[in-house]
Nucleic acid binder design. Structure first.
Lengths: 212, 212
DNA sequence: TTAAAAAACGGGAAAATCCCCGTATGAGGA
DNA sequence: TCCTCATACGGGGATTTTCCCGTTTTTTAA
């Protein structure tokens, strides 16, 4: 009996060719391929779910974290593997928290992928060496969470623009003083001392989305 | 005689599996695979170069643009295809300028890739519909270059920080007034009206590098 | 229910930003 | 040679940001 593998990735070329590669692994067969979490929900069959699902982190419609969470909820026996290009960011931790038992980079060697799938299937876990480097920093960030309010988050998004604080206040239907409070709180949380510093830090930490 | 294809991509999983897929295309064979431009320079054989090379845009060591330029210089008969995930940015134009005759997204369908390779081999070009949408804007940006001074560039980099203009002036050994002039010029060039707007636009246009 | 915590709000002031006004200097072209 | 243009610089003032000092209202917890 082969290991049944599922794939979720928004890049068709990668999805299809990775599927082809995994089909070529002796022990594996591809059970389901999906473009994103939403797509997976429709394609996954409840009476014959795959053993392992590889999930890309960054996807439109329904991203890796939400997909992993949904799978842990609805298919707790499926082993989840996060697949990503950027080893940076505490997104790794988010994915682990969402139920992934491994985190692989897209530039790992095919052999390592095969080994990882095998180990996860037999032992239930796999640790890639590459990741461990940043582990301490990641856990540290995790222990010291930013803890940003919903309103602060909205303010942060609006602060990443040409708008003045007064305009942001009007936009959020709040007094300029309240906005002032948000600013001050975020300055402390991000350890910065100017709006520019705040914006830069928010971008680095992926707290805001830049519209092109 | 099969079409000989070369691949350049820093993500091993993608590189290897895409290679596998292209080998499966009836008309194609994979002649060379490389992790980046530097790697390609060493692997490419001058007596039997491939017909077509697919180049990923974002790579470490030697990126897609430099790789394409080098290939157009040294192997002008090889057809180049840019391969990328983000259709945004005028990087597309840069790649075309560097000698690419097509620009494909990583989420195109395998069939379209096969079709593209075939058309490029027979006709010498291929136009994906997806790209044409932004063409006008891209060309317009190209016609209206930003034309940023060396000093303005340095100022821009320093403006992306917690530093005040006064501190930036000291850092650059220039008067605060002069800095003021740089600011004003860049505000016009970037069509913004605040330092935050300037910083955001500079990040969008890849004029500055964010240190993590 | 009541005390404590937090969120929202306000006045005021120093600092920084933004945007005018101008002058001086040096390089390059008519 | 003189003129233009780009660059560096300065004064000054309106606006915004930043950071104090508070009070009132709402939420939370005991």
């Amino acid at each position: 009996m082969k290991i049944s593998v599922g794939l979720v990735d928004d890049h068709q070329l990668f999805l299809k060719s990775l599927g082809l590669m995994i089909e070529n692994f002796d022990e594996c067969k591809v059970a389901v391929m999906a473009m994103n979490g939403k797509d997976l929900q429709e394609r996954i069959s409840s009476n014959d779910p795959p053993d392992i699902i590889l999930i890309d982190v960054s996807m439109p419609v329904m991203d890796g974290i939400d997909t992993a969470k949904w799978l842990t909820q609805n298919y707790p026996f499926i082993k989840l593997v996060a697949l990503s290009m950027n080893d940076s960011d505490r997104i790794i931790i988010e994915m682990i928290k969402a139920g992934c038992c491994a985190y692989l980079l897209k530039d790992t060697h095919p052999n390592e992928l095969e080994k990882a799938i095998h180990e996860i299937y037999t032992k239930g876990y796999y640790n890639s060496d590459v990741i461990n480097i940043n582990y301490r920093r990641l856990l540290q960030e995790q222990n010291d969470p930013l803890n940003i309010t919903e309103n602060e988050k909205l303010f942060l998004q609006l602060a990443c623009s040409d708008l003045t604080y007064k305009q942001i206040g009007i936009e959020m239907h709040l007094s300029e003083r309240t906005i002032d409070g948000y600013r001050e709180n975020l300055f402390h949380k991000f350890k910065v001392q100017s709006r520019v510093g705040l914006v830069l830090e928010a971008i680095r930490k992926n707290c805001v989305k830049l519209n092109p």
